[in-house]
Design a protein around this nucleic acid. Structure first.
Lengths: 233, 233
DNA sequence: CGATCCTTTTGAACACGTTCAATTCCTGCT
DNA sequence: AGCAGGAATTGAACGTGTTCAAAAGGATCG
């Protein structure tokens, strides 16, 4: 049975997450994790490295975010209310790890590398967050459908990314400033989205959609020389 | 005269910036910098550390941004045009350092620590970037004044931060996707700003201003126990 | 010139992340 | 029980960022 390595892996992971929570990024050392887990230094490398441990933590936080947020959504409530709920749930899930500072956000972003946060491609943890936003939208009343409706989850996720950035840099006690941000931002976003009912909003909406499409389109190869039949050397 | 240390400092800095440009973050080592500069290891620590070298690079990039952008502003042109110019200039200034990946953004953000990017407080390099946005606005025609006008530089800087994030994660050839983003975002932002002329826009505007004010306000101390005369233990 | 004092430089030393050849452990077989 | 072979573990070794007591250098005095 190959279950032994699995137990060790889990032991290392749990120890690592605890150290990250209690000591922050720099003070958490691979040697320290190994020592406290009662294994040798090299055995801490069931994970590719320290950064992957942080990514794992990030994944767990997202999982927690979804778990906490989903049952709190009120079907048929205004978007502003459900959005506020979801964003606050996100802050809640992250709170124990505020000591990591920008480290958390940083490593999470590096993990996304190769996939722009503005495009819809498939980063596994991000896709989950985006689908949580989709649930938030479908649970709320009065949200637009059509082409904009399809893009809204992605756009709301971007807003959530902004909140996360604010939170990571937030030094106010208990990050209460970030809560103020969420309380203000949720109705603001909801009202902005409802603009799509007006002609002026439709215009903005189509422009946003067009931009997102252009960003998602495959990159055009260099067409500086229009000569046909050329191959890349 | 204390000019000798100054020369060494500059020598170390120049070598460091070159290595960062040519080799990226990880492959640039303090020992390598010192060796190539012809000094001993410890002498590379005229700067507090490797991260501060990156911050210094960030400062230079911002300086370059301003230098490149300012003369290109067209007085009296529409905001969309000048904004596009300024954002493209930003990409230009950063381009040689794209190899640093998220490292650049990361260290720049950590440097801002203690000052939320959403508040207007005085981070030295940021203040410069915000004032460049202010220049962009005053150079353009039809931009709103009043309370919103006062906040717009800050808000545009946030948009610029978003572009920077996109650029840092952009793996398309020559970061052309980020250029697409700028081309689409500039008119979009300009049109959004012009919404303030309509009643619906004024409403959004006052909400944004109120939120920014709340975020900038000093943090309220914990008022959980209204008992008077208590002191923190 | 030499002595004093401050500035500047040095490089050994420490703890870290990471790698990997060597070792130990365990399982399934005869 | 004995043994082969794979799985799991080890810890020394490398290169890194960073620190700091000691050494070297340079200016200013008598």
């Amino acid at each position: 049975m190959a279950a032994k390595s699995e137990r060790t892996r889990e032991l290392v992971l749990q120890t690592a997450l605890r150290h990250l929570r209690e000591r922050g990024y720099e003070a958490t050392t691979m040697r320290g994790i190994a020592a406290e887990a009662g294994v040798s230094t090299g055995n801490a490398y069931y994970f590719a490295g320290k950064d992957e441990l942080v990514q794992e933590l990030y994944r767990r936080i997202q999982q927690e975010h979804r778990t906490v947020a989903a049952p709190r959504l009120t079907p048929g409530a205004p978007l502003a209310e459900n959005l506020r709920t979801v964003l606050h749930a996100g802050l809640e899930a992250m709170t124990p790890y505020h000591g990591l500072g920008t480290g958390l956000l940083t490593r999470a972003l590096s993990a996304q590398r190769a996939v722009s946060p503005f495009s819809a491609a498939s980063g596994a943890p991000r896709q989950q967050a985006i689908s949580l936003m989709a649930e938030t939208l479908t649970a709320s009343r009065g949200t637009p459908g059509g082409a904009l409706g399809n893009r809204l989850p992605q756009l709301l996720w971007l807003a959530y990314l902004g909140v996360t950035l604010h939170w990571a840099l937030d030094t106010s006690p208990d990050q209460q400033r970030s809560r103020v941000l969420v309380d203000g931002l949720a109705p603001l976003l909801a009202r902005t989205i409802s603009l799509v009912r007006l002609p002026v909003g439709r215009r903005l909406s189509t422009d946003v959609i067009e931009l997102l499409d252009r960003l998602a389109a495959p990159t055009a190869p260099d067409t500086t020389s229009p000569t046909e039949g050329r191959r890349e050397p």
